[in-house]
């Protein structure tokens, strides 16, 4: 067993894990232990480290992994300051849209007359709960609305049901969870898929290895996109 082209890859546990393991297996990596052992973090012999998706950019930026797979939602949320478009946040290359893990960042509120619109009209500000405070703040700022962003870590659907906020910004693949909680999508903010990212120094020092991997992935990525369309996934 050897790493692909001698590269270390940060693989996200969670919703993107299965598709990512399939992708690596398709490249000829021996992923048997990786898919079996969900407690082990470091698979040195195949050049894989596993972690939660939101940690992938951190490890790749630091050079602890040459490449990584994470959701676009994670990259956007860890991005730069909204008022400076050139402030890109994480210093990593975004090399390829892997197509899977497709979901949409949405603004949603309780079904019926939109409580967020009413709050905005009568109180001049809407309260929005989210696990993605930067994406939410950026979207509301861009659309010229005053909002009070409430960051929550767990099930964000609870927040509007208890009256704590009028709306939520969250990631959804099928909309099932929203519907079950009597919430409706009011706006679609951005579509997010899994991305292959690279450390900027690795991208130069291991150029041939990374380019070869990219060429092979470009051959398989479109097929995977069709396969996994509609699967319930989320980056966080």
């Amino acid at each position: 067993m050897t790493p692909i082209n001698g590269l270390t890859i940060a693989v996200p546990r969670g919703a993107l894990f299965g598709d990512t393991v399939d992708l690596l297996a398709g490249l000829g990596l021996d992923t048997e232990e990786l898919s079996k052992n969900d407690r082990k973090l470091l698979f040195e012999d195949i050049g894989v480290i596993t972690m939660r998706p939101s940690d992938v950019p951190t490890y790749v930026e630091a050079g602890a992994a040459d490449l990584g797979v994470t959701g676009k939602d994670v990259l956007l949320e860890q991005g730069g300051r909204a008022h400076n478009p050139l402030d890109g946040g994480r210093e990593v290359y975004e090399l390829l849209d892997l197509g899977y893990g497709r979901c949409t960042m949405v603004l949603a509120s309780k079904a019926g007359p939109d409580p967020a619109a009413e709050a905005l009209r009568r109180l001049g500000v809407m309260r929005v709960a989210t696990k993605y405070p930067r994406i939410a703040a950026h979207h509301l700022e861009e659309t010229g609305r005053q909002a009070e962003i409430v960051e929550v870590k767990g099930s964000v659907e609870l927040a509007p049901l208890t009256g704590m906020v009028e709306a939520i910004v969250d990631l959804t693949a099928t909309g099932t969870t929203l519907r079950e909680n009597n919430l409706v999508v009011r706006e679609e903010i951005v579509v997010c898929t899994a991305r292959l990212i690279a450390n900027p120094v690795s991208h130069k020092l291991k150029a041939a290895a990374i380019d070869d991997l990219l060429t092979r992935l470009r051959g398989t990525a479109p097929a995977r996109e069709r396969e996994s369309a509609g699967r319930e996934t989320a980056g966080a």
């Binding site: 478009p85 050139l86 890109g88 210093e91 990593v92 290359y93 975004e94 090399l95 390829l96 849209d97 991305r195 900027p200």
Partner: peptide, 14 residues
């Protein structure tokens, strides 16, 4: 050019 400066080849492609 911004996409390139941000090292975002996916954004450039899109």
């Amino acid at each position: 050019l911004d996409s390139l400066v941000l090292r975002d080849f996916v954004g450039l492609e899109q």
